[in-house]
């Protein structure tokens, strides 16, 4: 009844419509932005049992990644070093540092140091490190500038869409396998040079990264 609905009520439906439209838009935009690995995982940097600095070891001291993560070229799984690896040096240097106590303990007992794992592909994803490294995908592509991190943080989203960026166009990323652990290396020719050389690698090594579901979800 008009007695019930004042004249201003005629505007109400439009207002409601606009309100619903805006709300839906905001919710969808929110989900698109926040409910993604890019938001939920990037930047994750837990405190490790030993304050190991990659910036010091890999950056300043220039140790090769493969000194510690020794299986990365040969195995699907890239290993975290055992205490033995640490003790190779630390039985001579900083032997008494209280910060290294967990390492010495592990060395003595044989129980691993309880490192916290950052980069973890879900169980339903098959990922093989050796294949990627052998075909010139640098560590930096997935893990970021580890050699500059005092505390390692999750640098890339590792979402499926992110994987596909490279699987669809590997030429933008592959480099000479000798250079994979050189995290500071950039193609001297810039993006154009990278693309040109990348295309050649892709062709020569017959790189055909799978894009089908079963490529990764086996």
């Amino acid at each position: 009844m008009s007695n019930l609905f004042p004249k201003s009520a005629n505007k109400l439906p439009l207002q409601i419509l606009i309100f619903i439209g805006l709300t839906t838009g905001i919710v969808l935009a929110g989900v698109t932005y926040y409910a993604t690995p890019k938001y939920t995982r990037v930047g994750y940097a837990p405190t490790q049992p030993v304050p190991f600095s990659h910036a010091l070891h890999a950056g300043q001291l220039g140790m090769d990644c493969r000194y510690c993560h020794s299986n990365v070229e040969k195995s699907g799984h890239s290993n975290v070093p055992t205490a033995q690896t640490c003790m190779n040096c630390h039985n001579q240097i900083k032997t008494d540092s209280p910060l290294l106590a967990p390492v010495r303990e592990s060395y003595a007992s044989g129980n691993p140091v309880p490192w916290l794992r950052l980069h973890q592909a879900p169980d339903y994803v098959y990922f093989n490190h050796s294949v990627h490294v052998a075909r010139g995908v640098s560590c930096v592509s997935c893990h970021g500038q580890i050699n500059e991190m005092d505390v390692v943080h999750h640098a890339k989203p590792l979402s499926m869409g992110w994987c596909l960026e490279c699987h669809r166009d590997p030429a933008k990323f592959v480099r000479d396998p000798k250079l994979v652990t050189n995290l500071d290396w950039k193609h001297p020719g810039g993006d154009a040079g990278q693309l040109e050389q990348g295309k050649k690698f892709v062709h020569d090594w017959n790189i055909q990264p799978p894009q089908s579901c079963s490529g990764c979800h086996r």
Binding site: V31, T32, A35, T36, K38, S159, M160, G161, L164
Partner: peptide
């Protein structure tokens, strides 16, 4: 019900 699984919606999986 998540966007992208049943209805096409740009999502982190890019599929």
């Amino acid at each position: 019900v998540l966007p992208g699984y049943l209805f096409p919606f740009p999502n982190a999986n890019a599929i």
